[in-house]
Simulated assay, not measured.
Amino acid sequence: MLERLLVGETISLDLVNTEWIDRGEMVDFLAADGAAELWFREYGFDPATEDVEALRAARAAIRSLLESPGPEADARMNDVLSHGYESTRVSDGRPGTTSATDPGWGAAWRAARAFTELLATHPDRIRQCAHPDCVLYFYDTSRNGSRRWHSMETCGARTKSARHYRRSVSEEKAKQH
Rank of each mutant, 00 (worst) to 15 (best):
S68I: 00
E25P: 01
R166S: 01
V16S: 08
E117N: 00
R143K: 14
A32C: 03
E19H: 12
V7W: 04
H150L: 14
S151H: 10
D140G: 15
V52R: 06
I126P: 02
L136K: 08
A108H: 05
R125K: 14
T49E: 12
D51F: 02
A57Q: 10
A73K: 11
I21V: 13
R148S: 09
G104F: 08
A31K: 00
S170R: 15
L55A: 09
V90I: 06
A112V: 08
A120L: 09
A107L: 15
A107T: 12
A130F: 10
R127K: 15
P123W: 10
W109Y: 12
R127S: 13
R113E: 07
R167D: 09
S68E: 11
V7D: 10
L13R: 01
A100M: 11
C155G: 02
A36V: 02
A100V: 14
H131F: 11
F40Q: 02
L6E: 09
P71Q: 10
N17F: 02
R89F: 11
E53F: 07
A73R: 08
G145P: 13
R56H: 13
E72L: 00
S142P: 12
G24K: 10
T49F: 09
L118V: 01
A112M: 04
V7L: 14
A107E: 07
L30N: 09
W149Q: 02
M1G: 12
R4K: 14
N78F: 11
E172I: 04
D33L: 12
A130P: 11
G104H: 00
R125Y: 14
N78P: 03
H164W: 09
G44H: 07
M77E: 03
V90N: 04
D79K: 06
D74P: 08
G156N: 04
C134H: 05
A130W: 10
S99C: 06
G70W: 06
T88S: 08
N78Y: 09
